[in-house]
């Protein structure tokens, strides 16, 4: 192992600056989970399809299984571990997922919430269609998506200070 070149990477993850030496072929998801012990981002498919590994990187949602850690050198990252409010209470999205039953097994949830987080920053008032297209890179095998959409609508309403109206079924 010792002959494999390790190179330094520095990033800010959930507001904390970290520096490690990594092999260039280390995928960002493995870096997060194994080097930093940040296990919120999940490995579902490992082939860029399911979105369970989604994190926010410099304001973009990315699938961390399809990026090398070295490409993220200097970046700012947010994972589910960084989503709660500063006082430890649930953020609007987390509360929405809880209130609207936006999760069942919870495997997709960290990726869903991170994707929704970036989506709401770009589009604070999305239509249902925009939410569905916005999370189209994230698969959920449990919920059928209905309650995930509602959870995101709940969070959008809360962040906009408007009242959440649950759509009639």
């Amino acid at each position: 192992m010792s002959d494999i070149e390790q190179i330094p990477v520095t990033m800010t993850v959930n507001g904390k600056k970290v520096q490690r030496f990594v092999e260039p072929r280390t995928l960002l998801i493995h870096f997060l989970r194994e080097d930093l012990n940040i296990t919120g981002p999940h490995i579902g498919c490992e082939t860029s399809h399911c979105g369970a590994c989604t994190v926010e990187l410099n304001g973009m949602s990315v699938k961390s299984c399809t990026m090398f850690a070295v490409q993220a050198d200097g970046a700012e990252l947010t994972t589910i571990e960084g989503m709660a409010n500063a006082d430890g209470t649930l953020s609007a999205l987390q509360e929405g997922f809880r209130q609207m039953h936006g999760l069942q097994c919870g495997f997709c949830t960290p990726g869903m919430i991170l994707r929704a987080h970036t989506l709401l920053k770009e589009n604070p008032n999305p239509t249902e269609e925009e939410i569905r297209m916005g999370i189209s890179g994230n698969l959920c095998r449990c919920t059928g998506y209905q309650n995930i959409v509602k959870a995101i609508q709940y969070a959008a309403a809360k962040l906009n200070g408007t009242e959440f109206q649950e759509a009639a079924e």
């Binding site: 860029s48 949602s61 297209m133 890179g137």
Partner: peptide, 9 residues
């Protein structure tokens, strides 16, 4: 093309 995450990169 693909999905939002992939289009970012």
């Amino acid at each position: 093309i693909a999905d939002p995450q992939i289009r970012y990169v």
